[in-house]
């Protein structure tokens, strides 16, 4: 089951990237979360025909990746995995939107504009979300959630899920492997074993939860989760959010590429 192996690999890779050190990694997680969220909201606020106006939104992910020293490889791989879905959804539009528009004297279906718009929006949103993870990590996300006053109990539960995902994935992979070695069609699970296979893992999970709970109690857990340092955002973080906020707002207000093009066209004349 390549799914499980991929998932393990993917999570480990991003966890590792997030533990690097860079200008971006050192920023406060909340600053990165807010910037990325704001970026996404403004990005998707464009209407369905927006294409070239979206291009300035490329600056943010490029900056995050370059300054955060995140290699393009893992991002592109993940993006390529998602892209077919975005494309397939986008492709419906030329079929349903049969209006036309003219570009350089050529008549073009406006459905294709929607298609391009969706591909751009999708790719940018996905990339920036992945970059947030790759530069912040789950601990950073937890910290920003706490700063956003999300109840600690939920944060603790989220972190526990994250912590045990790799353990459970490995456990499931072992069970599947044992099954595959003795099955005719090792690619998927026969109906007779659905219950026993998943059920066994589930029972072990419940027992594990009990032991984890014991371990927590032995170290003084009484339903409250005490976190350590809660660093507050500093000057660089405000600068980061304000800077990108301004840039994104400016891009939304003015069609930068068109403006640039007009200046250039004027200069040529």
């Amino acid at each position: 089951m390549p799914n499980i192996v991929n998932a393990i690999y993917n999570i480990r890779q991003f966890d590792e990237l997030a533990r690097q050190d860079s200008l971006i990694h050192r920023l406060h997680p909340l600053a990165k979360l807010l910037a990325t969220l704001g970026y996404t909201v403004v990005l998707v606020s464009y209407d369905k025909y927006a294409t070239i106006a979206l291009l300035p939104f490329l600056f943010f992910p490029v900056f995050m990746a370059a300054a955060g020293r995140i290699p393009a490889g893992p991002l592109l791989k993940r993006l390529l995995y998602i892209e077919p879905m975005i494309i397939c959804v986008g492709l419906l539009n030329p079929l349903f939107d049969r209006g036309t528009t003219s570009i350089l004297g050529q008549t073009m279906s406006s459905g294709w504009l929607i298609f391009i718009s969706i591909v751009i929006k999708g790719s940018l949103a996905v990339t920036s979300a992945l970059l947030l993870m790759a530069t912040t990590g789950m601990d950073g996300i937890a910290l920003s959630l706490r700063k956003l006053k999300v109840p600690k109990i939920f944060v603790l539960q989220l972190m526990l899920t994250y912590r045990y995902i790799s353990v459970l994935l490995e456990e499931a992979a072992r069970a599947i492997q044992a099954y595959s070695l003795r099955a005719f069609n090792p690619k998927s699970l026969k109906r007779e074993v659905w219950g026993p296979m998943l059920g066994q893992i589930l029972l072990r999970t419940v027992d594990r939860a009990q032991r984890v709970y014991d371990a927590m109690c032995l170290r003084g857990f009484i339903g409250e989760y005490h976190t350590g340092k809660n660093p507050s955002p500093g000057f660089a973080d405000y600068l980061f959010v304000a800077g990108w906020g301004t840039f994104i707002a400016a891009s939304r207000a003015v069609n930068l590429p068109l403006w640039l093009g007009n200046i250039l066209a004027g200069a040529v004349k």
Binding site: I153, M159, T161, Y164, I165, I201, V206, V212
Partner: peptide
């Protein structure tokens, strides 16, 4: 709380 956490991981794997 730990049960929710570990069960979440279980569903994720499942």
């Amino acid at each position: 709380i730990p049960l929710m956490g570990v069960m979440g991981a279980f569903i994720f794997a499942a």
